[in-house]
Simulated assay, not measured.
Amino acid sequence: MASDKPVVIYPPDQEGGRRVRVDGKLLGRAYSVRDVAAFMQEAGLEGWDEMDVIRSGLIEWRGGGPEAWAH
């Protein structure tokens, strides 16, 4: 299933990590909104923080929103 948004956060895995995909490239696993913000900064969105991640329309959250980290 393809997303029309450039960032996809996948459902939490057994360890509570969520895969992060930006522009089709898997960047790694996030364990918090802070981790997602760090990935966004690495992708070129400098200055992004947790609130930017929570409010962003660029992100498709699968398996729960920014508050879901437990499997």
Rank of each mutant, 00 (worst) to 15 (best):
E15M: 10
R34F: 12
G17K: 07
Y31I: 06
L58H: 06
A37W: 00
S32F: 04
E46P: 00
S32M: 03
G28H: 10
G63P: 05
I54K: 09
G64Q: 08
I59N: 05
A37N: 01
A2H: 12
W48R: 02
D23P: 07
E50G: 05
V8G: 11
I9S: 05
V20P: 00
R29F: 12
D52A: 07
G16C: 13
I59Q: 08
L27D: 02
Y10F: 11
L58A: 14
V36N: 07
M51A: 15
A68R: 15
V36W: 10
R55T: 15
G17V: 14
E15V: 08
G28P: 11
A30I: 01
I54R: 08
D4F: 15
D35M: 06
V22D: 02
R18C: 01
V7Y: 09
V7K: 09
E42G: 06
E67S: 04
I54P: 02
I59V: 11
A38V: 00
K25Y: 01
D13H: 10
K25T: 05
R55L: 15
K25R: 03
Q41D: 05
R62T: 12
D4C: 07
R29Y: 11
V20M: 02
E60C: 02
M40G: 03
D4Q: 15
P6E: 07
G63W: 07
P66V: 04
G44K: 14
S32H: 06
E67F: 01
A43S: 13
D4E: 15
G65T: 00
P11V: 08
S56L: 05
R19W: 11
Q41L: 04
A38E: 08
V7F: 15
P6L: 08
A37T: 01
E60R: 09
L45Y: 08
G24Y: 12
R34M: 11
P66D: 07
S56F: 03
Q14W: 10
Q41A: 06
G17A: 13
G65S: 04
V20S: 02
G16D: 14
V8D: 06
I9P: 04
G17F: 06
A68V: 14
R62P: 07
G24V: 10
Y10C: 09
K5L: 15
E60S: 06
D4H: 12
D49M: 05
V8L: 12
M51E: 14
V33K: 11
P11N: 09
M40Y: 02
G44R: 14
D49I: 01
R18W: 09
H71C: 08
Q14L: 05
G24R: 14
L58E: 05
I54F: 01
E50N: 09
W48K: 02
G57N: 02
A70I: 13
G44Y: 13
M1H: 11
G28A: 10
S56T: 00
Q41P: 01
D52E: 13
D4R: 15
